[in-house]
Computed example of a mutant assay.
Amino acid sequence: MALKFRLQRHGCKGRPFYHVVVTDSRNARNGRFIERVGHYNPMTDLSIVELKTDRMAHWYGVGCRPTDTVANLLKIKKIDLAEIAKA
C-alpha cells in the first residue's frame, strides 16, 4: 500500500478549501482517507496552512510521502519531515 499526504478539496465552486490527509494513493481525491493531518485555505489574504507536524512525522516514518503540492506547502512552512521523524 503506497501512502500519500494529499489535498482533499472542499468548499463551494470558486472558493476552495483543502484538507491535508493521509490516504492510499489508489483512492480517489475526495475518497476514503486514513487520517486528517491539517488544512489549507488559499482564499484568505495570507493563505492559511495548519499542519499537525507530529502526526505527519509519524506517517512519514511509516512510509507516507507527500505529493508535489503538499511538499510545496511544507516548504512554505519550512518543515522538514525527515528531520522531525529522526528525532
Rank of each mutant, 00 (worst) to 15 (best):
M1W: 07
A2S: 14
K4M: 10
K4Q: 15
R6D: 02
R6C: 06
R6W: 00
R9Q: 14
R9V: 15
R9F: 14
R9A: 15
H10D: 10
H10L: 15
G11H: 12
P16R: 00
P16G: 00
P16H: 00
F17S: 04
H19L: 11
H19K: 08
H19E: 10
H19N: 14
V20C: 09
V21R: 04
V22E: 04
T23A: 11
R26K: 15
R26H: 12
R29G: 02
N30E: 10
F33H: 09
I34V: 10
I34H: 00
E35L: 15
E35N: 12
R36K: 15
V37D: 06
G38R: 01
H39W: 11
Y40W: 05
Y40T: 06
N41Q: 11
T44Q: 13
T44N: 13
L46K: 15
S47N: 12
V49I: 14
V49R: 12
E50D: 15
L51N: 06
K52P: 03
T53S: 08
T53G: 03
D54T: 12
A57R: 03
W59E: 05
V62D: 03
G63P: 02
G63Y: 09
G63E: 05
R65D: 06
R65F: 05
R65E: 03
P66L: 04
T67V: 09
T67I: 05
T67S: 15
D68V: 02
V70E: 01
V70A: 01
A71N: 10
N72E: 13
L74A: 00
K75R: 10
K78C: 05
K78M: 03
I79C: 06
L81Q: 10
A82E: 14
E83S: 13
I84Q: 01
I84N: 02
I84M: 02
A85M: 04
K86W: 01
A87R: 14
